[in-house]
Design a protein around this nucleic acid. Structure first.
Length: 480
RNA sequence: GCCCCCAUCGUCUAGUGGCCGAGGACUCUGGCCUUUCACGCCGGCAACACGGGUUCGAAUCCCGUUGGGGGUACCA
């Protein structure tokens, strides 16, 4: 059995779509599971959509989620560059061979003629298949056309009959009748080869054994199989993954919210959570386990277990899973990630890494994304910003002054560590005969400026006696 | 129009003829815990698209219908 070689072949059209990452992930997992090779190839076939910086972005996005590649463009790395357009001479040479052997032919039909033909086919209820007019033109007519400088494309001559049987790794046998295919264009009139031609040549040349890609490419498989056969190359196994949709069952797009990995990274998601979540879109190990480390995924992933039906991207579940991963992090690790994240957002609190580390225990169970940290902890890094609505809540209480004074007095005499602080505050409640939530609520607003905040005792302890008392005093004097 | 794929709770799914009066997770929801918010714990709502077969027996196999999706380009 030959070693497994898979590839991910995105076109550089912009930020890498989350669906693209899912495709890359499955192809990568399949290679890694079998100890094979994973190739990254940039398919910049269509020059009109070329987007150089997108090549960098694609690599950065893959690297961020934890997908590495053995061959292909590397960010300053040693990997051989696979940029499809650089292989143009080889593609055109194959086209030349096909032309010479009669497996391909020149077509001078104009787009208008072709469109009219399709229209007629459709109206007649027939499958629209190219009429092969140029294949039946007499030689002198062809020569005249060529001499006149009429633009031409090169078409592959598809068999008149027979079926192409694709034994798909996720769908089983799928059959296509060649008679329904039509001779497709392999080289455009401008001399640029098409995707359906170039893609199988590259896969053959790179000895790809398993083509793992989206289901949108299933229909083009027979056209590509023909190219492998023409090349005399082995036809790889195909695995067509179910497509990803938004909540409205339409293909995932911008209007569904975040669709690029970058957006999730910038929203404070963890790469391991994103990878885990994406792996579960179409694949599952059993009826229990949902949390998988990168290594477990590699060990357990089997493409044969991929579910063939399309999946809807559930952002809620990703958010939940991100929280699970966040809570599972070592405190030092979480702190480091927070500092890096805050730095990337330009937050000034990134400049206080020790402080961030001290805050971690207070919020690790409360936040679901790195982005939520600042909202909870900003009061520990600088002056309080009183939330007006929160302030209303305590200002409206006629006992507010009494509450704050008593709390202040209790704290003033407390030994400054967690338990004595709690004891002092609880003592204040008993002294006034109020429920803890009443007094704690008032102190919380004074200290944090908000009604929703990290644990009060921990917050007060971290803030220090002086600052805590100052904040309570400030709130006290702001009372009317 | 024609070709192809798909079809279990709202969502992701387990299920490969009897273990399923269908299991797990997210969401929603009732409760507990509790200084807020979370976390955690306990409980609840909620599905085999429909119709025919095959079989002693079907969510599981076959056919059809319906629905959804993809393709049908000198896009990929």
């Amino acid at each position: 059995m030959s070693p497994v070689r898979t590839r991910f072949a995105p076109s550089p059209t912009g930020l890498l779509h989350i669906g693209g990452v899912r495709t890359a992930l499955f192809a990568w997992l399949h290679a890694r599971h079998h100890g094979g090779t994973f190739v990254l190839r940039i398919e910049d076939t269509d020059e009109t959509r070329e987007h150089p910086e997108a090549i960098e972005q694609i690599q950065a996005a893959l690297a961020w989620v934890g997908i590495d590649w053995d061959e292909g463009p590397g960010i300053g790395g040693p990997h051989a560059p696979y940029i499809q357009s650089e292989r143009r001479p080889r593609h055109l040479a194959v086209a030349g061979d096909l032309l010479a052997s009669g497996r391909a032919y020149r077509c001078y039909c104009t787009p208008e003629e072709l469109a009219a033909e399709r229209e007629r086919d459709r109206e007649a209820g027939r499958p629209s298949v190219y009429s092969r007019r140029c294949l039946s033109r007499p030689a002198d007519e062809l020569q005249a056309l060529e001499a006149s400088g009429a633009p031409s494309v090169i078409r592959l001559r598809v068999p008149d009959e027979g079926v192409c049987v694709v034994d798909d790794l996720v769908r089983g046998e799928v059959r296509f009748e060649y008679a329904l295919l039509g001779d497709h264009v392999i080289v455009r009139s401008g001399g640029v080869p098409t995707y359906n031609f170039v893609n199988p040549i590259d896969d053959a040349d790179m000895q790809i054994t398993h083509v793992v890609r989206g289901e949108d490419l299933l229909s083009s498989t027979p056209r590509q199989v023909l190219i492998y056969e023409a090349l005399g190359a082995p036809v790889p196994r195909f695995g067509h993954l179910p497509l990803l949709f938004g909540p409205d069952r339409k293909r995932l797009s911008k209007r569904h919210g975040a669709t690029s990995v970058e957006e999730y990274r910038d929203a404070g998601y963890l790469p391991e959570a994103v990878m885990n979540f994406l792996a579960l879109l179409g694949w599952r190990f059993d009826d229990q386990q949902e949390l998988f480390s990168r290594d477990e995924l590699i060990r357990l992933f089997e493409i044969e277990r991929v579910n063939p039906s399309s999946a809807i991207f559930d952002a809620d579940k990703l958010a939940w899973m991100n929280g699970v991963y966040l809570r599972g992090l070592e405190a030092d690790d979480l702190a480091a990630r927070l500092v890096a994240f805050l730095g990337s957002t330009g937050s000034p609190i990134a400049a206080q890494p020790q402080r961030v580390r001290e805050c971690v225990p207070l919020v690790q169970e409360k936040i679901a994304t790195l982005a939520e940290f600042e909202g909870y902890c900003a009061f520990l890094f600088g002056p309080v910003r009183l939330d007006p609505a929160a302030w209303e809540r305590i200002a409206a209480d006629e006992r507010a002054a009494e509450l704050l004074d008593t709390a202040s007095a209790a704290l003033a005499g407390a030994v400054w560590s967690l338990e004595p602080i709690e004891a002092a505050l609880r003592g204040a409640c008993e002294e006034l005969g109020v429920k803890p939530k009443v007094l704690f609520g008032a102190v919380r607003v004074a200290i944090t400026g908000r009604t929703v905040a990290p644990g009060l005792f921990e917050s007060v302890e971290l803030l220090g006696r002086e600052e805590s008392l100052a904040r309570i005093a400030a709130a006290r004097s702001a009372l009317v």
